[in-house]
Amino acid sequence: MNKKNKNNFTNDQLLKFYEKMFLIRKFEEKAAQLYGAGKIGGFCHLYIGQEAVVIGILSSINSEDTVITAYRDHGHILARGVDPKLVMSELTGRKDGISKGKGGSMHMFSKANRFYGGHGIVGAQVPLGVGIGFAHKYRNEKKISRVYLGDGAMSNGQVFEAFNLASLWELPVLFIIENNKYGMGTSIGRSAAGGELYERATVFGIKGEKVDGMNFFNVSESAIRAREYIEKNSKPYIIEMDTYRFRGHSMSDPGLYRTKDEVNKMKEIDPVLMMKETLLNDYKIQEETIKNVESDIKKQIKDVEKFSLESPLPDLKELYTEVYL
């Protein structure tokens, strides 16, 4: 067995993970295109470059575990298995969107797939996710609440209140910092004092580590380690993912805060390409097999696009529904 694959995934499993990463990549490229064509409005935060994080975590996840994240959520909801057609139709603001066209890119949820959003206020999802972990513990469920946050949220006060509560009440929560180096246009060097971001949680007694978030295998390994720790100790855990977004903060980001050289250099460690090369070189998966997977995804994305553009606009009566239950 390859030394990079400590988790003993079969080739079929690895191919599935690659398929998911490739799906997110192609979905996001299509979203960028549709945004440019004026088919998607408002804010649209793409996940391109960070795919290894969400799929690496997915590889460790129990299907009953819950997930919550902020507004860069397309990759997360796709990873949880929600139909890409419903996700894209939400981006296009249509009736068939996962939130019936009333949420948009930043606000997508699926209880059936244990995905709790999709939150637009930086940091707010962290106490919410701790609360979901509280509910798991309250009901004696063997579930872990997986809470994603960005490097930007790591300077937001409520996040520390949430760390304190999660540790104090020994809640089954995995915090995952997606450190993509920029909170919108401000680099972490200009926003965060002190040492590593995850160390800010360790002062609350939360065990944690920093991981290469561009490499699926590293992410997966740490995620499995974290799961075992949480299950054994009934305490929260934190992983800081060293990652990078290849696109702007949102579609309207001119990107003046970083150089093209920097972006291009990071693209040399593109997580999707690296995963593919590992599968080809180290696992001897046939190029043909991978190509088939890729072309199926490309075909699927075409259907997704078509569906999301043909789905009608929400009925006007939807304006006043679902304000109260």
Partner: peptide, 26 residues
């Protein structure tokens, strides 16, 4: 103490926690 909980002086955090717990059905 499982159902009646003293919180730290931490309104932003414990309110968010309570809302999250409600989202999960409590």
């Amino acid at each position: 103490s499982k159902r009646v909980l003293d919180t730290p002086i931490s309104e932003h955090g414990f309110t968010g926690l309570a809302i999250g717990a409600a989202m999960a059905g409590l």
